[in-house]
Amino acid sequence: MNPPVRSAFVDGISFWAPRLPGWELARQVLRGETTAPAEPARRPAPALLPPTERRRAPDTVAVSLEVAARACEAAGLDPATTASVFASTHGDLAISDYMCDTLVSTPTLTSPIRFHNSVHNAAAGYWTIATACYAPYTALSAHTSTFGEGLLESLVQAVTDGWPLLYVAYDIEAKGPMATMAPSAGLLGAGLVISPRASAHSRLRLDWRVVDGASHPPTVASPGTLALVQGNAMAPCLPLFEALATGRGEVSLALGPGLALGVEIVALECRG
């Protein structure tokens, strides 16, 4: 039995990695129209945040707010009324390293700011503060299937609630001894605005279905793309963004050991 294919629309795309800082550039690089800059860009400044939150923002917040804001801009969407799904494989690895290290030596001298930034939903929390958003968010992880599971939850919410939704996926660089067991390098953030209906802002159609994992192994990104985000834990998002860059293509994203999310990117005939 073939599971039903459902359609959603991609209204906004964003991307940030040090060698691919921004979707326009990333799109051209992934299409082979230009080469990536040799010099990595500096971490984006979370300009949206009020000063108090801005000076406390760790890398997870900086990179995810950057792609969240750009995706909403591209979609012409008001973040204040937009529900969101935030996905990160490991969360804030730098703070986890700090916490574990401090607990060994001086547990009673734990930083309250870093502790309250350590929650997996810190990026989502800062985003809703920055945008005065009362709409729900979630924050999730599924190890190597994090990107696929987060995208699936976004598609499901768009279907059930009937509103455009923001999807943000990110991981940051691992620090200290933790890096051996939860490896991740550099910063990577990717954002999508997914809408259940076509609108003037819709760029592409996204046809999706949940399929058997054994017969649909995860699509692997091209070696050139992988080299540009060297070892970031969110690298499984890359095949989808390659398809989004060319405006067509089929990819399979892992959903754990047994399932996969099959996605086909389809160009829209007339763009608004």
Binding site: V119, H120, A124, A139, L140, S141, S145, L152, G256, L259
Partner: peptide, 21 residues
């Protein structure tokens, strides 16, 4: 946590760990 529960029960469906404090 999610991975453990899925393997402990021998399941192979959608599996997510939600972490919103």
């Amino acid at each position: 946590l999610g991975d453990f529960v899925q393997h402990a029960l021998g399941l192979a469906g959608i599996c997510v760990t939600v972490a919103t404090a």
